[in-house]
Design a protein around this nucleic acid. Structure first.
Lengths: 221, 221
DNA sequence: TATCTCCTTACGGTTTCCCGTAATCGATCG
DNA sequence: CGATCGATTACGGGAAACCGTAAGGAGATA
């Protein structure tokens, strides 16, 4: 089993449980941190000392507080960590379902396991630890189901831009101007309308309100 | 300190930590359940056996799964529990900030403590346990701050109804019909428009998209 | 260069939404 | 009973969004 594990998770309550789970599995050399920046520092120091971590368990969403951080979310942390230690195993622990981002990370071999914070998450974490230790990838059942449901529409950068503008209160009529300023193409009102229609159609929505709420909920914007 | 505590929390990882926290404080007579219905049953049985619980620690959001439940969320659970045991102390543990609902529960003396799942939530839970045991109420600092920020607009039932309809993809034009069917008043298009304007005005929004996303994010709908 | 195709843009008619004003209703009070 | 005030509803003009169709442009191919 893994020997040396780093846990990056801002919620103290979640952090305690992960530690306890590892402890129960006989992993005693664990370090837990509440900030991404700290996580990266510990990873680097461990390499410097010739005793690198085997595994990083990290959340995705980290809350901002009064101590400003360089790295603000788990995905950025993973990228930074993989730069300095490409062979480290990574298990992601997340409350939200961000299928698009997560799928991409799996494809790029940036992560080895995904556990969604849900009813049986403790069990799933144990399974993930076992599976990833055997050099296989793991996804908790909830997230698998969700990803299957969810692959109905692949959002392009353009899609996300216009949804984000909607969320910021920009009217469709004003959008062409905004998009041109940012050198985003296409930029015409027609294209925006067409694209919004397509998204709503695929997702079974009738109103932009639903689309914006949906994207917000999934963490796309 | 409390002697007998019931924990209702669907996430196994959160549940483990709460148990551990209680254990560290010397509270060993704890029961943890993953469903609201189970929680109510245990409360009732404890009363029947003459050994009622001192304290209920409960989440608010419970995820649906394949085992259908009578009580689907923490607030309903609290109401049901208070019916059978009005003197039980209640600490709520929640990830989202539902200031309106929570404030109401505090006012009605339905809950004694509120801990938001955040960076220092373990610490806050310990503080809540101490404070509530002394018959005082407790709110974790995050939630206090949030409630202050948030009191810009007090959403009425009517407000939430129309926002919810928007979220469901109903056009404003169709809303009067819906509202009349459900005996909600007022129901005219004018009233709906006026109310939407007021909400957007207070919150500094220009579009319904923002309003819906905002309410969704705060768990109002 | 001519042609075909795909993507983008332009345009016009219809619906919905927005917003101000005026009429109606209902309860309270002198 | 009439007056008054607040809340609700009705209405109408103008703006934005919606939707189908047609025109324009860039790239690929022969």
């Amino acid at each position: 089993m893994f020997k040396k594990v780093l846990i990056a998770e801002d919620h103290e309550i979640a952090n305690i449980s992960v530690q306890k789970t590892l402890h129960d599995l006989g992993i005693h050399n664990t370090k837990y941190v509440y900030y991404c920046d700290h996580a990266l520092t510990w990873i680097k120091n461990a390499i410097r000392d010739g005793e690198p971590y085997d595994l990083l368990i990290t959340d995705i969403e980290f809350e901002d507080d009064d101590s400003p951080q360089e790295i603000k979310d788990g995905l950025s942390l993973i990228k930074a960590v993989k730069m300095v230690q490409p062979d480290i195993k990574v298990i992601v622990l997340t409350a939200k379902d961000r299928s698009a981002l997560i799928n991409e990370m799996f494809r790029e071999n940036q992560i080895d396991g995904l556990v969604r914070k849900a009813r049986r998450d403790g069990q799933h974490l144990r399974e993930a630890l076992q599976t990833v230790y055997q050099h296989r990838t793991y996804q908790s059942p909830d997230s698998k189901k969700f990803i299957q449901e969810q692959n109905s529409h692949e959002f392009t950068q353009f899609d996300l831009h216009i949804v984000k503008l909607l969320y910021e209160g920009i009217s469709q009529k004003e959008m062409p101007e905004y998009l041109q300023q940012r050198d985003i193409r296409p930029s015409s009102l027609s294209s925006i309308e067409k694209r919004l229609n397509l998204m709503k159609d695929v997702l079974g929505f009738t109103k932009n309100e639903q689309l914006v709420a949906h994207c917000k909920e999934l963490g796309f914007i």
